[in-house]
C-alpha cells in the first residue's frame, strides 16, 4: 500500500508547470513587444512572481544546459539562458483562469516575504541577498501545488482552517500527512533547483531541521512571520506562527534592529501593495 505521503511525492515528481498570475504575464507580454526592455527590467518583473521565477530557475538548472543545481537567482538565469529564451518561456506560461482573492493573497504574501528577506539580509549584511530573497519568494510554492493538483484536499484544508483555530500547516498535515513546506522541497528536488533554495523552502516552518543553510532558512522563517504579523496578503490562515528560538538566536537581532527592520518593511509594503493593485488592474484591462 502506498501511503498518502508517497502518493503525493510521486505526484510532485510529475509536476511540469504551474499557473502564473495573469496580470504579470500581460505586463511581461507588453514589455517583450517593446524591444527596448532591458535584462534588468525583465528580471525584476519575473522576480515578483514565485511561479515565473521557479519556471525560469527550473529551466536553467535542467540537465539540458549542463550545470544542474547551480543557479539560484533570476538575473543569473537570464544571463545564462538569454533574454529571448526567457521571454518565450514566460509568454508560454499557463495562467490562473480566475483571479481568485486567495490566489492574489498568496501572491502578495510570497512577494512580501521576498521583500522582507531582502531588507533583513541587507540590515544584517549577509552575503547573497538576492539568493535568500529568491528562497523567501518561493517559500510557499508547495501551497500552489496543493491548490492546483490536489483540489479536493485543498478544499478540505480550507474548511478546517475556516472552521477552527488550526493553522493551514496543521490542517495540511491532518489531511495530507505532509505540509506545504515539505512539498515545496520535493518540487525543488524534482526541478533540480540548488540546495540553497530547497533547504530554506523545505524547513521554513521548522528551521532547526536546516543544517547546511541554517542562516538562510532562519531569514526565510523570520520573513514569513513578519509578513504574517503585518497582515499583508493572505497565505491561507490569519495566524502569526511562533518564531523558533534557535532561528532567533542565529539571527541575533536586538529589539532596536528588529524595530528598524519592521519599519523599513512596512514602508516598502505600501509600494508592493500599489504594485499589486497595478498588476491586478492590468489583467482586468486586458479582459
Amino acid at each position: 500500500m502506498q501511503t498518502k505521503r508517497e502518493e503525493i511525492n510521486r505526484m510532485v515528481q510529475d509536476v511540469k508547470s504551474l499557473p502564473a498570475l495573469p496580470g504579470i504575464v500581460v505586463k511581461l507580454r507588453a514589455l517583450a513587444e517593446s524591444d527596448a526592455a532591458s535584462l534588468q527590467i525583465i528580471a525584476r518583473l519575473i522576480s515578483s512572481d514565485q511561479i515565473l521565477s521557479a519556471k525560469v530557475l527550473k529551466l536553467v538548472n535542467s540537465p539540458f544546459y549542463g550545470f544542474p543545481g547551480r543557479v539560484s537567482t533570476v538575473s543569473n538565469a537570464l544571463i545564462l539562458l538569454g533574454v529571448n529564451v526567457v521571454k518565450a518561456l514566460v509568454l508560454s506560461s499557463s495562467i490562473f483562469d480566475l483571479m481568485e482573492e486567495n490566489v492574489v493573497g498568496l501572491w502578495e504574501h510570497s512577494l512580501g516575504a521576498g521583500v522582507a528577506a531582502n531588507i533583513i539580509t541587507k540590515r544584517l549584511a549577509l552575503p547573497d541577498g538576492e539568493e535568500i530573497s529568491t528562497a523567501a519568494l518561493l517559500h510557499d510554492i508547495g501551497k500552489v501545488i496543493i491548490k492546483i493538483k490536489l483540489k479536493e484536499e485543498a478544499e478540505r484544508i480550507r474548511l478546517k482552517v475556516d472552521g477552527g483555530e488550526v493553522s493551514i500547516r496543521e490542517a495540511e498535515k491532518e489531511v495530507l500527512d505532509v505540509d506545504h513546506a515539505e512539498i515545496g522541497g520535493w518540487l525543488g528536488k524534482t526541478w533540480c533547483l540548488p540546495e540553497k533554495l530547497i533547504e530554506p523552502i523545505a524547513c521554513h516552518h521548522d528551521p532547526v531541521r536546516s543544517v547546511t543553510y541554517a542562516d538562510r532558512t532562519a531569514v526565510v522563517h523570520l520573513s514569513d512571520i513578519l509578513i504574517k504579523a503585518s497582515g499583508f496578503g493572505y497565505s491561507g490562515d490569519d495566524l502569526v506562527p511562533r518564531i523558533q528560538e534557535a532561528a532567533w538566536k542565529k539571527l541575533n537581532l536586538s529589539d532596536h534592529v528588529l524595530r528598524e527592520i519592521v519599519d523599513e518593511i512596512e514602508d516598502k509594503l505600501i509600494e508592493v501593495k500599489n504594485f499589486s493593485l497595478e498588476i491586478q488592474s492590468s489583467h482586468e484591462g486586458k479582459v
Binding site: 483555530e165 493553522s167 504574517k228 504579523a229 497582515g231 490569519d238 495566524l239 502569526v240 506562527p241 511562533r242 518564531i243 528560538e245 532567533w248 529589539d255 528588529l258
Partner: peptide, 13 residues
C-alpha cells in the same frame, strides 16, 4: 493575528 502566540515573550515583543 497574534491570538495563538500571545503568551510567548518573544512574540509579545
Amino acid at each position: 493575528r497574534f491570538r495563538q502566540v500571545c503568551e510567548d515573550p518573544l512574540m509579545i515583543r
